[in-house]
Design a protein around this nucleic acid. Structure first.
Lengths: 201, 201
DNA sequence: GAAAACATGTAACCGGTTACATGATTCT
DNA sequence: AGAATCATGTAACCGGTTACATGTTTTC
């Protein structure tokens, strides 16, 4: 159900087509939420049926056309209700830690590879998030720029602050994972050393 | 597909019934993986069809019976192959951070409540994980005890170390979330103060 | 005797993924 | 002219959730 609110959050900036929204999920918002276009188009239709958004055919080139959606008052009210309602946290389901708990079944090299992949993955995320956080801080983010243009000046400070703060949290998360995986590599080395001395002694 | 490997991981300790496995998901392993019984029983059947486990009817009381599953050689090979194979990381989908990014749409009190709930949730997790990590360290964990009894002594050190290490990682994760949410509360206070001085001035 | 725990499922649904399918427009 | 991008979907599938359904055994 969060996809719906991710879409509404984006549509509070300005009217967009399904394709515009899909592109957003590949960049900025994509860092906290991802969705393929095969999920976006049907969801927009359901949201229109529920009165949360309204679509409008607009011409595109000589023969083409596209459907631009804008958020309705109902949609805005629904979004704000979601913002105010308590979150329901999904039960833990963490494949990386599940696997880590049973690495005695893998070879030391496979265990090392597991942690290396974990580091690579989270370092990639971290870099993206640092870049996005910088863009927010320096005012380079075009999406945020457009959002601020449609926002009352009193809300500018909070709008920027919450986005910056979100990315700081994501960066901290990534750094925790990286630090943990680095310690994992050390652990594998220690265990290999001790098992080799056992075998060798 | 990870449910399958979570089940295999548990069945490397000893043969269990669907109900035993379900109970495990409510305690120890439940911290890294969760599954309702409605998912466990059909999955065990599929795994039996795939030759990864074998079920055996065992009597239970005077009239009752239960089906106890044990892992097969094929199942063990499959589990080890999964342990060795690289993980595929799912795309980011983080409702708590999605919401945090747009908290300018919530009232300050709702924003505070969001962060308070985040703290409560992760503090609960943290306490559970600290308790489990302690049980692993002190040798109080019955599940780990039984596992070690069916494990060659050379593997004991690694078996314990990886489980302890996994819980340390989970605890670090929870602590990162708690620290972030605490800073969130401070941020809301700062923003409320500055918007009030604007309104009041 | 009642309650809690043990035991095992089915069915409907939902959110998300992957693969497939098509066509227009803009840029080089 | 060809490639990249814009644009919009359908269909099959899969993993997971929620609700429903039933009966036995053990414990108090």
């Amino acid at each position: 159900m969060s996809l719906r609110y991710a879409l509404l959050a984006l549509l509070t900036v300005e009217p967009m087509t399904g394709y515009d929204l899909h592109k957003q999920f590949e960049s900025s918002v994509g860092h906290v939420w991802h969705a393929p276009d095969s999920q976006i188009y049907p969801e927009l239709k359901r949201m229109e049926a529920a009165g949360l958004v309204e679509g409008e055919e607009v011409p595109w080139g000589p023969r083409g056309k596209k459907r631009q959606y804008h958020i309705t008052d109902t949609g805005l009210a629904d979004f704000q209700a979601w913002m105010t309602a308590p979150m329901d946290y999904a039960r833990t389901r963490d494949p990386a830690h599940l696997k880590a708990a049973y690495l005695e079944w893998a070879t030391p090299e496979a265990a090392r590879e597991h942690f290396r992949a974990h580091i690579t993955y989270h370092e990639t995320l971290r870099l993206q998030w640092v870049a996005t956080a910088d863009a927010i801080r320096t005012g380079t983010s075009t999406m945020l720029h457009r959002r601020l243009q449609n926002t009352e000046p009193e809300k500018h400070e909070a709008t920027i602050a919450f986005k910056e703060f979100t990315y700081e949290g994501l960066i901290a998360k990534a750094e925790t994972e990286i630090a943990w995986a680095r310690r994992g590599l050390e652990l594998v080395d220690r265990l290999s050393a001790s098992s080799q001395s056992t075998t060798g002694g």
